[in-house]
């Protein structure tokens, strides 16, 4: 489509675009994603007011309009999620991981600094807010220990959704009814907004997990949830993202991946730990 938006990219344009997007984000699209990419780029071109790929792509590459790049990232990243997804990992967090974290840090009475939990990518907020709900409802130490929950994503648009924290019934289908009543307010059209106190408590950030310098701003996390992100990266970008995740974690910190993901195929820097609920990865402890 060096010509007009609509009929799909030419082979050469697709290849040029694919290399550009990979260098910016670490995400590489295979031929099987061709239809998906064509549709989303078409939307970007139309959103930006261009009538052809070439004009839009030149403007994108020259950074003439920063909004083009963000719209592109927003269109091409996948944000499907819901509350309490893969809930068994939250069970592991409450019953196995957090007790270990508290023990490693000297117990609730002697801890300095909060327990820090990161959800990356957090998409529209369901994951970090699910963690908050499970802790508030089920963790015995929530009144004794400070907990910081952070969510981060590359996509500014989903972060705006996360700030609004207004969800449809499909997103809430796994949330127990009493929790919905207690923590959500109906706002019409079948949507429910999360309690303002929880929204305020979760800090949201925009970040690219492959950007080492940006990821340095995240430090000393006890637990990181990074589910269903690395599967979109090629080998080298996965390695870099894994290195960056290692950097944000406290020694001994825990990393949860998606159920179909395995760190052993990406990088040897984490130590796998088998829990009844599945494998979790730890940043090794060790003296400097």
């Amino acid at each position: 489509m060096t010509a007009a938006a609509g009929p799909g990219l030419s082979e050469a344009d697709f290849e040029r675009f694919r290399e550009y997007f990979y260098k910016r984000t670490g995400i590489r699209f295979g031929e099987t994603k061709r239809y998906f990419v064509d549709k989303r780029i078409d939307a970007c071109i139309r959103n930006a007011g261009y009538d052809n790929f070439t004009g839009w792509f030149v403007a994108l590459r020259l950074s003439e309009r920063p909004d083009l790049q963000q719209d592109l990232i927003n269109q091409l990243t996948v944000n499907e999620t819901y509350f309490l997804r893969e809930d068994y990992q939250f069970d592991a967090l409450l019953h196995k991981v957090l007790p270990e974290v508290l023990a490693a840090r000297g117990g609730p009475a002697r801890m300095t600094g909060p327990v820090k939990i990161l959800s990356l990518p957090c998409s529209t907020g369901e994951e970090p807010y699910s963690i908050a709900l499970r802790l508030l409802e089920e963790w015995e130490h929530i009144e004794d220990v400070d907990v910081e929950i952070h969510g981060a994503d590359i996509d500014s648009e989903v972060l705006a959704w996360a700030v609004r924290a207004s969800y449809g019934e499909r997103s809430l289908q796994r949330v127990p009814k009493p929790w919905v009543t207690k923590y959500f307010t109906p706002v019409g059209a079948g949507r429910y907004q999360l309690d303002g106190g929880i929204r305020e408590a979760v800090t949201l950030h925009q970040v690219n997990a492959c950007d080492t310098a940006a990821m340095r701003l995240f430090r000393d996390f006890d637990v990181v949830f990074c589910r269903n992100m690395l599967i979109y990266f090629d080998e080298l970008s996965s390695r870099r993202a894994a290195e960056n995740l290692y950097g944000v974690m406290r020694p001994g910190g825990y990393l949860f991946l998606g159920h179909s993901e395995s760190m052993s195929r990406i990088s040897p820097i984490f130590t796998p730990t088998l829990l009844p609920e599945g494998i979790v990865y730890q940043r090794p402890t060790g003296a400097k």
Partner: peptide, 16 residues
């Protein structure tokens, strides 16, 4: 105690 928000000013990126 409980859920808390990080109140510190956001850090700036440092490039060596």
């Amino acid at each position: 105690m409980g859920l808390i928000r990080r109140n510190a000013e956001p850090e700036q990126l440092q490039y060596a």
